[in-house]
């Protein structure tokens, strides 16, 4: 890209440009003072932008009706993850109909590339990517989210219930 300069004396004067710029800014400022609701910017971090629910942001582990975690620790998300940021430790469940569940499920969000492959790989709708998108931390370990964070963080209000119920399981032949 090249800058095209108009030849001529006037364009070499800076003052008209500065003044017209000031007028533009002033006009916008006065407009905004009287039309506060139409202002496009946000007072971050006091105000935050809400993305649509389809935004692929922060991971959520869904829960069942009884509030326990939906994940069956099949490790397909971990296998599919191109960034290798998911770590799962499976364990035997007390309930024979559940059989297997993760005692440890960690996502290293700093490695995560938010590609959504985990969501796609999941056969039981246990992991989704939600609209939340930022969470600061002061330490590397703050960015390794565990089950508590992924499924039960306060924003989720007790966890998101997966739709998959017994009838659907039957339809899927599970």
């Amino acid at each position: 890209m090249s800058i095209v300069k108009k030849p001529g004396a006037i364009s070499n004067w800076y003052l008209p440009g500065i003044i017209s710029g000031m007028i533009f800014t002033l006009r916008k400022m006065i407009y905004n003072i009287f039309h506060k609701d139409k202002m496009p910017t946000l007072n971050y971090p006091e105000e935050k932008y809400e993305y649509s629910p389809r935004f692929k942001g922060q991971h959520v582990l869904t829960v069942k009706k009884d509030g326990s975690i939906r994940c069956t620790a099949c490790m397909l998300c971990a296998t599919n993850c191109p960034a290798q940021c998911i770590k799962i430790v499976a364990a035997e469940s007390e309930d024979p109909s559940v059989e297997k569940y993760p005692i440890n499920y960690e996502i290293d969000v700093l490695r995560c590339v938010y590609c959504g492959y985990c969501e796609e790989a999941c056969p039981v709708d246990a992991i989704r990517m939600g609209p939340e998108w930022q969470k600061p931390g002061a330490n590397g370990s703050n960015f390794t989210y565990d089950i508590q964070e992924l499924a039960y963080r306060p924003q989720l209000k007790g966890g998101i219930e997966s739709r998959l119920d017994e009838q659907e399981r039957h339809d899927f032949g599970i």
């Binding site: 290798q84 960690e106 290293d108 590397g140 370990s141 390794t144």
Partner: peptide, 13 residues
């Protein structure tokens, strides 16, 4: 470490 052993190696930011 399991798969994401990177976390321990990262240290403080």
């Amino acid at each position: 470490m399991k798969k994401n052993y990177f976390t321990t190696e990262r240290g403080r930011l």
